[in-house]
Simulated scan of single mutants.
Amino acid sequence: MSRTDSDDQLGFDQNVDYLGRALRAIVPQWVAQRSITTTVTTDRPRYEVGDEIRITVVFENRLPVPMVVETPRQRLWGWEVDGQLEASDQPYYVRDRPNAFYFRAREKKRAHVTWDGRFERRDESARVPAEPGEYTISAYLATDDERPRDGTTITLR
């Protein structure tokens, strides 16, 4: 259902950024979170039921200095369809160990995921195709509060 372009388990290559680590100690998280913007786009606004929807998520550090955004669990970011994480009502288990998302100055991090137009339901053995209608696809940084997020609406016919 979801794939990233990177082999990195978190979806982004995380090179060691020593300046970013130093800034993490002195820059408040509310500043770091507000320095990152999130943008979500799809390759087109309308699809037929059953089409695959290619979703592009871009996280951008708007500042000319490195930033580090801390997350309370291992998940750095997520995507949703109508508020359902990865188009599923299945519970996701992510380690409660904190993590950090490092950004170089003015860096953009891009991920591509594909939604197959189906919802995974925990009480059914099969995946359920989405009904025709409008759906909101959103993505966010996985912080506890004031998540940098964005969304776009698509129509299934």
Rank of each mutant, 00 (worst) to 15 (best):
F101I: 04
R149H: 11
V113H: 02
I36K: 03
E60H: 15
P28I: 09
P72Y: 10
T42D: 03
D82F: 00
E124M: 12
A126G: 11
S88A: 10
V49N: 03
D43E: 12
N15C: 11
F12N: 00
R75K: 09
D51A: 10
K109F: 01
T56Y: 06
A32T: 12
R157I: 11
L63A: 10
R121G: 05
R95Q: 12
Y92Q: 10
E131L: 14
V58S: 00
E107W: 09
R157D: 12
S2R: 14
A139R: 07
M67D: 00
P72W: 04
Q74W: 06
D51N: 07
I26S: 09
L141P: 00
R149S: 14
V57S: 04
L23F: 12
P28E: 08
Y140H: 12
Q74G: 04
S88Y: 06
F12I: 04
I55W: 05
L141F: 07
G78D: 00
E80R: 08
E146A: 14
V57H: 03
P132G: 10
P72R: 08
A139Q: 02
K109N: 06
F12Y: 03
T42Q: 03
R118M: 14
D116T: 00
M1Q: 04
L23Y: 09
G20W: 08
P66E: 13
R3I: 09
P28Q: 11
R110I: 05
A139L: 08
T42K: 04
W77T: 03
D82N: 10
V27G: 10
I55C: 06
D43I: 08
R118E: 12
D17W: 01
V65I: 11
D51C: 08
F101T: 01
Q33L: 09
D116C: 02
R121A: 08
A126E: 13
V69D: 05
A22K: 13
E146P: 02
G117N: 05
I137K: 00
W79E: 01
I53V: 13
L141G: 05
Q84Y: 08
R3H: 10
A126L: 12
E70L: 11
G11E: 02
L10A: 08
R122I: 05
F101G: 01
E48S: 15
R34I: 06
D17R: 04
N61A: 09
V16E: 15
A25V: 13
R21F: 12
W79Y: 06
E107D: 05
D17V: 05
D144S: 14
G83N: 03
I55L: 11
R3K: 13
